[in-house]
Amino acid sequence: MVFLLVNDVTYSYQGKGSVINRVSWGIEEGEFHCLLGKSGCGKTTLLKLAAGLLQVDTGSIFLNGKEVVKPSPEAGFVFQSPTLLEWKTVMDNVLLPVSLRRKVTTKDRENAMKLLETVGLAEYIQRYPAQLSGGQQSRVAIARALIQQPSMMFLDEPFAALDAITREELQDDLLKICKQQNTTVLFITHDISEAVYLSDRIAVMDQGSIIYQTAVQLSKPRTVEVRYSPYFNDLCLDVRQVMGAERS
């Protein structure tokens, strides 16, 4: 079943040329898709449209069979910057999605604690965001998006501020959590190997259109060896060429 369906969507910010240009896209339930593209090509805009934060000009978007007109409680969103609340502790930031809906229970705290352990922040729960490094803040934001166990996750370059090793660890954690909860994921990145490693399918955007897409046939679950396999590298090169070709 197609879980997220983007159907011939166009969008422009007020008074400007179209930023998204007749894009169609579909993600099957439980799949992990990556969207690649150069800065300013419209990735974030497309993601916000899909999440219901922006309204399409023409075309339509369906999430789990329902047309998206406003943000759905089924979806989690990780913004390009961590966007934490400075006046709340790490723990309370992670619990924010819950506390906005109902009273926080001990069970919720346990869940949050588990997630924070997964992202390696168990010792930081009583700190405030200003006392964390940029990478730690990103990890809090990811934990916050996962707390409600969303069936659809939108992630906008969540790992951009992390070092290579932490990034690899978190990639594996993210894959694991999404597999466990059968989460459908739309993931934005500008890192080609990250996209290839994570996804079932890759799309490359340029100037508001999808110019290339391909399925990734790598064994699952992914292992470190995958990163150094010839297929992996060939695919990276292919994608690189598609993206590079647009430069000339």
Partner: peptide
């Protein structure tokens, strides 16, 4: 109030009242 934080609250389905009480006022302190 920071636009992205407002988007975050909208994403979490917060009502206008909650956005005011839980976001705009503390952020504006």
């Amino acid at each position: 109030t920071d636009k992205q934080k407002q988007e975050l609250f909208r994403m979490l389905g917060a009502s206008r009242w909650k956005i005011l009480i839980q976001l705009k006022i503390p952020a504006g302190m």
